[in-house]
Design a protein around this nucleic acid. Structure first.
Length: 848
RNA sequence: GCGGGCGUGGCGGAAUUGGUAGACGCCGGGGACUUAAAAUCCCCUGAUCCACGGAUCGUGCGGGUUCGAGUCCCGCCGCCCGCACCA
């Protein structure tokens, strides 16, 4: 009989709290490393504690949560942890702007955001929570950094960085907008600073090869990483110059060597510098090159410019004298900073040659007969060599090998592989980061801090009243005794890039002993992460760094995995239309809460006048098209919000937020609630009845949803729940119906855990524990097979009729049935039946 | 320029990988219940025509393969994302 508690509306506010507390009390989401169940490590990218949770977090963590809960129901021991990527610039900016301490600001934000996450009822193991700014965490990170140093994977060298002269700090490339500091607006300078580097290039080949095995990763991300690593193979060789010196160039097209008509070097190349000494014209040209803009648009439209040095280079085979130019399109930091230019087969060289009247020779053609075909643009395609002396008629591939062989034999060069990937500069001249655990001693040089002196803690009394690195001007912090000789020494004042923090946090989640970063054996229990979920914006940097760091630790013998993330899923953004008014040139935006939206427009609540409805774009504070998760949880409850996050849009695509949509979700929560109250409805009489069709539907749904969850196709799982719900509602009371409702509670449990717990508790009278710890329902395979099927009957490929017949009906019978259909006969209209195609259990197509 | 992805109703999207296009949700319309409202329930909802039985068209556009194409092939168009003077 219906429990009276189902007669009132489901009170999400109360139920959410009750069950969140219940889960916490029995610690049902704490992962046990010693469990002998199969292990599942489900991880979402941990958040930066910016202040408040935004809707993107909600979507990200809801997906991971459904998967984690589902895996647990399937009998897995699940590790689903949460922590904080807590170092970084915003904390220092807040310190400068509001006078708060970065630590206080960060931990306050963490407290707020943790509370918000808890309101969503995520099945997280909070016992493993940490923030990367905890001295304990960054102390272990310092230890790992020293291990990498020992292994030769850390070094220091001078390198050019983006220096903001106003803020007195280094900026990352993405913090430089149109050549100016994003915060100060000052023109960014290139400065040479002594910087710490990690040897990621040591693993370049390995990182590239590893991508091939990452079948659980989106092809797109693998490609992006491949491009980023940027392997190219070619030849590096030296030209003899007319001034008696040699010039190394690098080319990937040694096969086109006979087409070389000039040589070009970068403006920063030593040869260019040498020419500029005592040559004002050359000096001016180099200056001009440096001024050139750095933005994409400027580069695209930049004209090819060159300066003839007057020097010539001797072609290694033909002996011809090639002019040597300083050219603005040659990059100093790729290859050798100097190229042999082949205008016939490289568009940049072609443009340059055209401008300066240099020879353009075809040396590759589709076949030998087309050796003299004119070139109107550079041809980069395959073919055979022409106009190329000993290479004539040789294929591109063979010619490459042949030229490399001859150059190597002559001792003037060698085949070489060049990478786009650079070593990772990890120095930041900032306070709020992991101190690099080294000291500089006048006598001993750079000395690592002994591990027993870790962590090197950040000083707490810091001054943010002036720009620059507070560690550098701290009165006492940096003055220490040298660990080696005991003499006076200074601490390293650079801190580590925050990407280092996120390069190993998943290991610390898996295992957190006090005395070391992690325990290898325990890590082996969990790693690799079975499913990693996060934004596409981390496709390269974070994911590449984490792959590198894991390899580096394996290289040091600290872990036994190479690839940290077996599967990667990149979720789409949450979007919303914008509301604005144009006031002259200025556009004023309004939040959805300030606007009344109806099907025929939007008006501002304040004055009742219309506002413009703009494009549906990513939620952002500047466009004010945001909703606050806390508000919507308060209005609709956690389960309705979670349900919305999973509905409609495939998880990898953008999800448009809508008021109507969340209202629909809220209605559905209530609808399920009413249905959950109907177990046993109809009484004992109805209970004697069976409803095979409904049972079949139930088992099909269970099986299909399992597939959907495994594939993270939550939108499909949601649709199946709607379908099953409708089917149950329409069904006559029966034992089958009651059973279907019982199972429905389990099916929605991963997605709407609070509602499911509440109904489950009432319906089971608390006798079967928590639904969070219940098992996913079994599928009765026999029930998946339909005994009746609907057959489409087509005439000339168009649907004319459908037939409902017993499954497995022989072809002949199907054909006869189809032909006897009145609708089909009418369509055939006496024409001769020439052919009948019969696909058993599917369709009959009649051809006339 | 290079690389990748996508194009299906008013909207978000389904479609067993060549076999009934538009599941499911949202919006919209009509109705029931109610003094009224909320809540709830039922029906309709791709377009055009219609004798109300149905017919024709329809998955960005143009071709093709096939008994049959949203799905495969060729050629276009449009949008989105990433990288970008990488030799």
């Amino acid at each position: 009989m219906t429990d009276s508690r189902f007669n009132v509306r489901f009170d999400a506010g109360q139920a959410d709290c009750r069950w969140q507390k219940a889960w916490e009390e029995v610690r049902c989401f704490e992962a046990d490393s010693t469990s002998d169940k199969p292990k599942s490590y489900v991880l979402e990218m941990f958040p930066y504690p910016s202040g408040r949770i935004h809707i993107g977090h909600v979507r990200n963590y809801t997906m991971g949560d459904v998967l984690a809960r589902y895996k647990a129901m399937r009998g897995h021991e699940v590790l689903h942890p949460m922590g904080w990527d807590a170092f970084g610039m915003p904390a220092e900016n807040a310190a400068m702007e509001k006078g708060v301490h970065p630590a206080g600001w960060t931990y306050d934000n963490i407290a707020t955001m943790k509370g918000q996450l808890k309101q969503l009822g995520f099945a997280l193991d909070w016992s493993r929570e940490f923030a990367t700014c905890d001295p304990e965490y960054y102390g272990h990170e310092q230890a790992l950094f020293l291990d990498l140093y020992e292994a030769g994977l850390v070094y220091r060298r001078t390198s050019a960085v983006n220096w903001d002269p106003v803020d007195q700090t280094v900026l990352a490339n993405e913090q430089v907008v149109d050549g100016r500091g994003w915060r100060s607006g000052a023109l960014v300078e290139k400065r040479n600073l002594n910087q710490w580097f990690l040897k990621i290039t040591h693993f370049a080949q390995d990182l590239l090869d590893g991508l091939g095995d990452l079948e659980g990763w989106p092809e797109k991300v693998r490609l992006m990483q491949e491009n980023w690593i940027g392997k190219s193979t070619g030849l590096q060789f030296a030209f003899d110059l007319s001034n008696g010196e040699k010039l190394d160039v690098y080319t990937t097209r040694p096969d086109t060597i006979f087409g070389a008509s000039f040589v070009a070097v970068a403006a920063d190349h030593p040869l260019a510098q040498g020419v500029a000494d005592g040559n004002a014209e050359a000096q001016a040209f180099i200056e001009k090159c440096r001024e050139g803009g750095t933005t994409a648009a400027e580069l695209e439209t930049a004209e090819k410019l060159g300066f003839d040095t007057g020097i010539t280079a001797k072609h290694p085979f033909s002996g011809a004298d090639l002019p040597v130019y300083i050219a603005n399109f040659v990059l100093m930091d790729y290859g050798t900073g100097a190229i042999m230019a082949v205008p016939g087969h490289d568009q940049r060289d072609f443009d340059f040659a055209t401008k300066y009247g240099l020879p353009i020779t075809r040396v590759i053609a589709a076949n030998a007969d087309e050796a003299d075909a004119p070139l109107t643009e550079a041809e980069a395609g395959d073919g055979v060599c022409v106009n190329s002396d000993f290479l004539n008629g040789v294929s591109v591939a063979d010619a490459k090998a042949e030229v490399i062989k001859r150059i190597e034999a002559a001792g003037s060069g060698e085949g070489k592989t060049v990478w786009r990937l650079r070593d990772w500069g990890v120095s930041r001249q900032r306070y709020w980061g992991t101190p690099i655990p080294f000291v500089h001693c006048g006598a001993c040089g750079v000395v690592p801090v002994p591990k027993d002196q870790l962590p090197v803690k950040l000083p707490e009394d810091v001054d943010f009243s002036t720009p620059g690195n507070p560690l550098l001007r701290h009165p006492t912090w940096k003055h220490v005794d040298c660990p080696k000789c005991g003499g006076k020494a200074e601490r390293e004042t650079d801190t580590l890039d925050t990407f280092v923090n996120s390069s190993w946090y998943f290991l610390r989640f898996a295992s957190q002993p006090a005395d070391k970063p992690f325990d290898a054996a325990e890590v082996a229990q969990w790693m690799p992460v079975e499913q990693y979920i996060g934004g596409i914006e981390h496709a390269i940097l974070h994911l590449l760094y984490a792959r590198f760091w894991t390899r580096a630790l394996a290289h040091c013998g600290l872990v036994d995995v190479q690839e940290p993330f077996a599967s990667l899923f990149t979720q789409g953004m949450v979007t919303h239309e914008t509301y604005s008014r144009k006031d002259g040139a200025r556009e004023t935006y309004f939040t959805p809460a300030e606007v009344d939206r109806s099907s025929d427009g939007a008006v501002l609540k304040a004055d009742g006048e219309a506002v413009d409805i703009g494009k549906v774009i990513k939620m952002s504070k500047s466009k004010k098209n945001v909703v606050d998760p806390e508000d919507i949880i308060a209005d609709y409850g956690a389960d309705a919000v979670r349900w919305f996050m999973l509905s409609d849009s495939p998880p990898e695509r953008d999800l448009p937020w809508s008021e109507a949509g969340i209202e629909g979700c809220g209605r559905f929560v209530q609808r399920l609630w009413r249905l959950f109250g109907q177990i046993g409805a109809g009484g004992a009489g109805a209970d004697a009845n069976q409803d095979v069709a409904l049972e079949r539907r139930l088992h099909q749904t269970i099986a299909a949803m399992a597939e959907d969850f495994e594939a993270l196709a939550f939108n499909k799982a949601v649709a199946r729940i709607y379908e099953l719900t409708s089917a149950i509602e329409k069904a006559e009371y029966s034992a089958s119906r009651s059973e279907a409702i019982r199972k429905l509670q389990l099916l929605v449990a991963p997605m709407m855990p609070h509602l499911a717990e509440e109904a489950w508790a009432i319906n089971t009278h608390g006798q079967f524990g928590l639904i969070a710890e219940a098992a996913w329902p079994d599928v009765d395979e026999a029930m998946l097979v339909e005994d009746e099927v609907t057959i489409a009957v087509q005439h000339k490929g168009k649907l004319r009729d459908t037939l409902t017949v017993a499954k497995g009906l022989p072809k002949e019978e199907l054909e006869a049935l189809a032909l006897s259909s009145e609708k089909v006969q009418r369509s055939i209209d006496g024409a001769e039946v020439r052919k009948v195609i019969v696909v058993p259990d599917r369709l009959v197509n009649i051809v006339t």
